[in-house]
């Protein structure tokens, strides 16, 4: 009986406290995008929501709309390791999948909430041979795309990324030169 109800019971609450401190509520039928860092937030939220995993890379190669999965109220990017591996070999997972996920949200005008702390936007790595690599994390790259491709800005009151308007002209969280835009 329970199995028959899977996908029908709305999944809209989780106990994990986002590192950005935001109180998350899903407000629209089309679903609210949760953008964040995997290790600090998404890993725990995906588990709690029992979020479906995209396992078919063929689907993602086509014009996949990243619509809200049945029974969910939040739109999260969750794919299998095999899908990651496939796209990593085909030009990079971020450029082939994450970008399309972000683009779909902008196209539909979905609400986008930043669930991870701002201190997860950059990372710094010491490479052997003494070079330091300072770059955007995956979370940072998603914010960068919203800011520099679509003109979105972070709204401190709601923790949302919103289209740029006169009353919302806050500073960007990333710099234009941090990443290439395709």
């Amino acid at each position: 009986m329970l199995n028959a109800l899977d996908g029908l019971i709305p999944k809209w609450k989780f106990s994990h406290i986002p590192t950005s401190g935001v109180k998350v509520t899903a407000t629209t039928k089309k679903g609210t995008y949760l953008v964040g860092s995997f290790g600090s937030d998404l890993e725990f939220i995906l588990k709690e929501l029992d979020y479906p995993t995209i396992t078919d890379y063929q689907k993602l190669r086509r014009d996949y709309g990243f619509l809200l999965p049945k029974g969910q109220k939040f739109n999260l990017l969750n794919v299998s390791e095999a899908v990651v591996e496939y796209f990593s070999k085909k030009g990079g997972f971020f450029n082939r999948v994450n970008t399309k996920w972000i683009d779909a949200a902008v196209k539909r005008g979905d609400d986008i909430i930043l669930i991870s702390s701002k201190n997860r936007i950059y990372k710094k790595i010491q490479l052997k041979g003494n070079n330091i690599k300072y770059e955007l994390t995956g979370y940072g790259k998603e914010i960068h795309r919203l800011e520099w491709k679509y003109g979105y800005r972070y709204d401190i009151k709601t923790n949302k990324m919103l289209p740029l308007k006169k009353e919302n002209n806050s500073k960007t969280l990333t710099k234009f030169n941090d990443n290439k835009i395709n």
Binding site: S37, F38, G39, S40, L42, E43, V84, S88, F93, F94, R120, K123, I125, K133, E135, T137, G138, Y139
Partner: peptide
């Protein structure tokens, strides 16, 4: 923290 589809730690 590490990232699911990127190398390197935060």
């Amino acid at each position: 923290e590490s990232e699911r589809w990127e190398s390197g730690y935060i």
